[in-house]
């Protein structure tokens, strides 16, 4: 178990993501860090914050020209680095999968999480910790909205 997986840290996170309270695999995994974000972490990158920032800000990156925060633009961004949409979040040995989240009120993307080889999922929570969770759905709620799509790439 990670030394960061303390009661205080868990409680802080559960207050924001109540679905994790009943997630038996929930674990606080990595230190708080503001130099990368969930969108980058989903594709295993820790060298920049992936976001279509306007104006362009130092330390941020977006792989495509379109700087919209519309959900389809997140799909396009991941397509540009080799991911393709898929139907389910079921674990498949040959594929690395990611889940994409949407705020249905605004139509904008909010978050992305990644499936690990163990079949569990990992998320970078903003500037806060990386966590492990059982399914993409246990972090759904007011903050990140709902899972809207899945994508995959060959390991």
């Amino acid at each position: 178990m990670s030394p960061l997986d303390t009661l205080v840290n868990r409680d802080t996170i559960i207050q924001i993501f109540p679905g994790l309270a009943n997630d038996k695999n929930f674990e606080v995994h990595s230190p708080e860090e503001d130099k990368y974000n969930c969108i980058a972490w989903a594709v295993n990158r820790k060298d920049a914050l992936w976001w279509p920032a306007v104006p362009q800000l130092d330390g941020t990156y977006w792989p495509i020209e379109n700087k919209s925060e519309e959900f389809q633009n997140l799909i396009d961004a991941y397509c540009s680095v080799g991911y393709v949409p898929c139907e389910t979040w079921d674990f498949e040995v040959k594929f690395k999968k990611i889940a994409l989240y949407i705020d249905f009120d605004t139509g904008k993307f909010t978050h992305a999480s990644r499936q690990l080889r163990s079949g569990l999922w990992t998320s970078k929570l903003g500037k806060s910790f990386d966590i492990i969770h059982s399914t993409p759905f246990t972090i759904e709620g007011d903050f990140y909205g709902s899972v809207r799509a899945f994508m995959r790439i060959i390991f």
Binding site: L49, W51, A53, E69, K124, G126, S128
Partner: peptide, 12 residues
């Protein structure tokens, strides 16, 4: 700022 945006991934 850090406290209020701690869990936000959105740069906006």
């Amino acid at each position: 700022w850090r406290k209020e945006t701690k869990f936000s991934s959105s740069i906006s």
